[in-house]
């Protein structure tokens, strides 16, 4: 199963990167989410898979009875999910504002910060 998840991770990453490389802002946003999911799965898989046994100690015991899923990657991913959601929302709103102000959703037409015809720096002291 690990093998198939590795393949799935690579599909996620490939799709995410491909979407991020498109010049449309919204597709880039989708790509970011997909890429984030892929990386979360990557961490999850790298921590080894255990079917169906959650890392929860049964009541009354001090340590789990049998092998359990690796809790560490889960803790890492849990924060990652929430943070990537926050980032996603922020970028979404940013893209929206950019669209409202510039009336553009293509990065090639958003050149306010680094315009292609910026003047040369002055040659003086």
């Amino acid at each position: 199963m690990d093998f198939f998840l590795a393949i799935l991770v690579s599909i996620f990453v490939g799709c995410g990167v491909y979407l991020l490389l498109s010049q449309s802002v919204i597709r880039m946003l989708l790509g970011l989410t997909v890429l984030g999911n892929g990386i979360n799965l990557l961490i999850f898989t790298a921590g080894r898979l255990t079917r169906e046994v959650a890392p929860i100690v049964p009541a009354g015991l001090y340590t789990p009875a049998g092998p359990i899923a690796n809790p560490l990657p889960q803790a890492l991913i849990l924060t990652a999910i929430v943070i990537s959601f926050a980032m996603f929302s922020f970028l979404l709103v940013l893209a929206f504002r950019a669209y409202q102000t510039l009336d553009a959703d293509n990065t090639n037409t958003m050149r306010l910060a680094e315009p292609p015809d910026a003047p040369q720096p002055p040659l003086s002291y």
Partner: peptide
């Protein structure tokens, strides 16, 4: 703290 859940999920 003892079962699946927690502040993140609850908040969401």
């Amino acid at each position: 703290h003892n079962e699946p859940g927690g502040g993140f999920i609850g908040g969401l």
